[in-house]
Amino acid sequence: MGIHVARFRMGGEVRWGWVRREQVIPIPGRYESLAEFLAEGAARARGMAAAGSVGEGLALAKLELLAPVTSPCNVVCQGQNYRSHMLEVGQDPDAKDFNQFFRKASSSLASSTEDIVKPERVRMLDYEIELGLVIGRRISGPVRVERGGLHEFVAGIVMGNDISARDLQLAEGQWHKAKSFRTFCPVGPYVYLLDAEDCARLMDLRLQLSVNGEPRQDASTSEMLYPPEETLTELSEVMDLFPGDLVLTGTPGGVAAGRNLSKLARQVGRFISVFLSDKTLAKLILKQGNTAGYLKEGDVLRASISSPDGVIHLGTQENRIVTRALEAPVREARAKVG
């Protein structure tokens, strides 16, 4: 069985700890990044757990937990990887014949309790709860990854939220820009370090997200079209991955964009996704101007991922939406360009 670890601040220092019930047991050593922790600290944490030596624990509730995934790193994302999400946006999951990838800037990483900053110009801010894979070893060429051997490549799993500015994504077609604003990728609070026996559990995890207490997303990882082992096998043919990198594996149905697109489909018919180009469809959605369900100032996101038996639990994220205007020099520069 794997163990839960967290990154936290204590007395002005950043430390790592083994999470045991409601206590955090500090792990010996100082590790500036997730990659450094995986190189030495993870083995120390496992040794502590195996020995049953808990030492002096710290109250979890009193600690400032930090993002366990650290920048700089690769943040690679899968698009439309859940059946329910494809159906809600008018796509046929059985017809999908490729694994879709995109990137987020690692500067978008935030903690599980940090405010998510909504740029003032963004009107359609969306949420996407996702299971994240933390890469545990360097991959510099094609490899064949099997589900039972995932732990050989994936050090652990973590909860993430792919926050997205849908109006920018649709109007400009720039996924990276729309998804990479600072704070647009809350992660944590824990990394669950995998053991071999945990690999089979990854396709039976429950993802749940609510906005202001209203359930929005509730699904199982069993919905994935391309499971982690297939995804890593394909990615290894394309790019190098390094310890501490993050792969986000897609989101299930229930996002604000899907809810609004479903309403639009009922109004004009399901032919919209068949006969209209992506660009034309985007213009139609933006012209409709329906921002219902999208995130606004003061909204609170709450998310969790766990296995049915509770052995794997990635903690709870609770992030508030705050709005921030562009800085004056940026506004002035944009005015001159216009």
Rank of each mutant, 00 (worst) to 15 (best):
G136Y: 10
H4G: 01
R334A: 14
D115Y: 10
M203V: 10
K104Q: 04
A256L: 15
V311N: 01
R121A: 08
G52H: 06
G141L: 15
V69Y: 13
I285L: 12
A303G: 08
L261V: 06
L150D: 06
I27L: 09
I321D: 00
Q317W: 00
E152P: 14
D94S: 15
E22N: 11
Y127M: 02
F8E: 04
F98Y: 12
Y190S: 00
A6L: 07
G17L: 05
S220Q: 05
N212A: 08
D204E: 11
A51H: 03
L207S: 03
A282P: 13
V191I: 15
R7Y: 11
V158S: 03
V24N: 02
P227M: 01
A39Q: 12
R44Y: 08
W18K: 03
S180A: 09
S164L: 04
P93C: 07
S236A: 10
L170N: 06
R9L: 10
G132L: 08
L209H: 08
S71G: 03
Y127C: 01
M86S: 04
Q288G: 14
P28D: 09
L235N: 01
K287T: 12
R121I: 07
G11L: 10
Y226S: 04
R324A: 15
F242P: 11
T323Y: 07
V54N: 03
L109E: 03
N99Y: 08
L194P: 07
F184D: 00
G141W: 15
Q217K: 05
A51Q: 08
D204Q: 14
Q174T: 05
I25Y: 11
G136R: 10
T323I: 14
V145M: 02
T323P: 05
L63R: 03
V122A: 13
V337S: 07
G47P: 05
R201Y: 04
P189C: 00
G293K: 10
E318G: 00
T316R: 03
S307I: 00
Q267D: 11
A171K: 12
T316Q: 04
A200S: 15
W18R: 08
V211A: 02
E120Q: 06
L207I: 10
G253E: 10
M124R: 07
P227R: 01
E13V: 13
E114M: 06
Y226L: 01
Q78A: 14
M239D: 06
I116R: 02
L60P: 01
A155Q: 04
D115F: 14
R320I: 11
A50V: 11
A219D: 10
M1W: 01
G315A: 04
E56S: 14
V24I: 15
D204M: 04
G269T: 13
G289Q: 09
R137H: 14
D309K: 02
E214A: 13
D195G: 11
G55K: 10
H313R: 00
F275G: 00
Q80V: 15
T113N: 11
I305H: 01
V268N: 02
L63T: 04
L87A: 11
A282C: 09
A333P: 00
R44Q: 08
V154H: 06
G90A: 06
P243I: 04
S220A: 07
F184Y: 12
K177G: 04
Y82F: 12
S164Q: 03
I163R: 06
Q91I: 02
M48D: 12
